[in-house]
């Protein structure tokens, strides 16, 4: 059985780089960017080809509601 596929989107205006999402991610899919932004903050980002399952843990712990989680639909859409 293949794992569910997910994707996260991090709002760069809300993220403050606290690192809680990096700590909580069970797949270790999140890292900080290399360059600090104009606020001096290295915000979080999803690593390339990360094995994200869309579990939503990062959204749950994010104190700034900066993360939105998307998940591939596992059930077939009902036909009209």
């Amino acid at each position: 059985m293949s794992k569910a596929k997910g994707q996260i989107a991090i709002n760069p205006a809300r993220c403050k780089g606290c690192g809680l999402c990096i700590w909580v991610c069970p797949q270790k899919s999140i890292k900080t960017v290399d360059e600090a932004d104009r606020r001096g903050i290295r915000i979080a980002c999803c690593a390339e080809n990360a094995p994200c399952t869309g579990c939503g843990f990062c959204y749950m712990v994010c104190p700034d509601t900066a993360i939105a989680v998307y998940k591939e639909s596992t059930t077939e859409e009902p036909a009209d």
């Binding site: 809300r14 606290c18 869309g54 104190p63 989680v69």
Partner: peptide, 19 residues
């Protein structure tokens, strides 16, 4: 989208410290 900012929250970023 399965998780995201709730509607009862505005778009204003939080003024609090990181974490």
């Amino acid at each position: 989208r399965v998780y995201g900012k709730p509607d009862a929250m505005t778009d204003v970023p939080f003024p609090y410290c990181p974490g």
